[in-house]
C-alpha cells in the first residue's frame, strides 16, 4: 500500500491463532481412512489375490485396449462432428441452423443407452445400405448387418451422442473470442477459413479444452454401456463375463475400476499440458524467459510528443540493451 514507508517498518510478531478443531478433524479422518484400508486388506470378499491374478490377465488387458479404441475413435469423430455442428449453429443460413438444432435436440434429449440399443437394432430398421440416386436402382448395396459389426455400431452410437455435447462446447468456445479478432483478420484480407483456423479456433481452444477433457473422461466410462448394442469386448462387460464363469464378481469389478482409474489419471495429466499449451500469451503473465529485460509496463518506450515540425520519422525509444535486440533500430 504505502510503498517506501513499508520498507522501514518491522515485520509483525504475533502469537499465531491456534485451530484445535482442524487438528481433531484431520486426525479423525486419517483414523477412519486407515481403519477402512486395514479392514479392506483383510476382508476375504475383496479377494485381493484374485485381483492380482486378473489385473494383467490377457483377456482383461485386451479389453482395456478395446475400451481405449472405443474412446479414441468415438471422441475423434465426435469432436469433428461437434465442430461442424457448432459452425452450423452459428451459420447465417436459417435452414442449416435449424438442422443443427434438431440434431442436438434428438441426441441430447434421449439417453445414450437407448440410442446404443437402437443402433444395435439398426439392421432391423434398414436392412440394406444403398448408395445411388433416390428412387432408382442403387449403384452399390450392402446388407446392413454385414457392413456394420457391433464394434462399428458402438462407435457410431457413442460418437453421434457425444457430438451433440461437443457442439455446445465448441460453440461456447467460438463465441468466447472477441469479435474484434475476426474483424482484424478480415481486415488483413484473410479468408473465412483462415480466420477460423488461424485466429478464432486457436483462441477458443482455451475455453474448449477443459470441458472436452471432462468429456473424454466421461466417454471412457460411457464405453461400459456398449453392452446395449450388444458389444461385449470392452473392459466392463469382459470382466462381468469372466466373473460369470468364476462366480467371483467383486475382484473383477476392482480390476476394471483400477484400469479405468489408470486411464483417467493419464488423461488428466494430458489435459494439464494441453491447457498450458493453448493458454500461450494469456494464461501466463510472466514475460518469456529468453528475454530478461522484459518490462512490466511500457514506460521505457514512452515518448513525449513534441508539437511542431522537425520530428524524426521514426522515434526510436531509448532501448536498454536487451539481449536479443536485433540491431534493426533506426535503419529507416
Amino acid at each position: 500500500m504505502n510503498g517506501e514507508s513499508a520498507a522501514t517498518s518491522e515485520p509483525i510478531k504475533a502469537i499465531r491463532l491456534r485451530h484445535p478443531w482442524r487438528v481433531v478433524f484431520a486426525v479423525l479422518l486419517v483414523a477412519i481412512f486407515a481403519l477402512f484400508v486395514i479392514d479392506a486388506a483383510f476382508r476375504p470378499a475383496y479377494d485381493w489375490p484374485a485381483v492380482g491374478k486378473y489385473l494383467f490377465d490377457r483377456r482383461i488387458s485386451m479389453a482395456a485396449v478395446v475400451t481405449i479404441q472405443l474412446t479414441v475413435f468415438s471422441m475423434v469423430i465426435a469432436i469433428i462432428l461437434g465442430v461442424i455442428l457448432a459452425v452450423m449453429r452459428l451459420s447465417p443460413n436459417p435452414v442449416v441452423k435449424s438442422v443443427a438444432w434438431f440434431y442436438l435436440w434428438i441426441f441430447r434429449g434421449t439417453p445414450v443407452y437407448v440410442q446404443l440399443t437402437i443402433w444395435g437394432l439398426i439392421s432391423l430398421i434398414y436392412t440394406s445400405i444403398d448408395i445411388g440416386i433416390p428412387f432408382m436402382d442403387p449403384w452399390v448395396s450392402f446388407q446392413t448387418n454385414a457392413a456394420l459389426n457391433t464394434f462399428t455400431l458402438a462407435i457410431i452410437g457413442l460418437a453421434l451422442n457425444e457430438a451433440a455435447y461437443m457442439a455446445e462446447i465448441v460453440r461456447a468456445g467460438l463465441l468466447s473470442v472477441d469479435k474484434g479478432q475476426e474483424e482484424a483478420s478480415i481486415a488483413l484480407g484473410m479468408s473465412w477459413s483462415q480466420t477460423m483456423t488461424r485466429v478464432i479456433l486457436p483462441q477458443s481452444m482455451r475455453v474448449i479444452i477443459p470441458p472436452t477433457g471432462n468429456e473424454v473422461i466421461s466417454m471412457l466410462k460411457t464405453t461400459s454401456l456398449v453392452t446395449a448394442v450388444p458389444f461385449s469386448l470392452e473392459l466392463f462387460t469382459r470382466s462381468r463375463d469372466i466373473s460369470a464363469e468364476t462366480f467371483n464378481p467383486i475382484p473383477l469389478l476392482i480390476v476394471a475400476s483400477i484400469w479405468y482409474l489408470f486411464f483417467t489419471s493419464i488423461l488428466m495429466v494430458g489435459q494439464y499440458f494441453l491447457e498450458k499449451r493453448f493458454s500461450r500469451g494469456v494464461g501466463d503473465r510472466q514475460p518469456t524467459k529468453s528475454d530478461p529485460a522484459a518490462p512490466t509496463t511500457g514506460a521505457i518506450t514512452g515518448v513525449v510528443p513534441v508539437v511542431g515540425s522537425g520530428q524524426p520519422t521514426v522515434v526510436v525509444p531509448p532501448t536498454t540493451d536487451a539481449p536479443g535486440t536485433t540491431g534493426h533500430e533506426g535503419t529507416r
Binding site: P287, T288, S290, A294, V315, V316, E329, G330, R332
Partner: peptide
C-alpha cells in the same frame, strides 16, 4: 517492428 520502435519486443506476446 524496428520502424515502429519495437525491434526488441518481437518475441513478446
Amino acid at each position: 517492428l524496428a520502424r515502429v520502435g519495437l525491434a526488441d519486443r518481437a518475441d513478446y506476446y
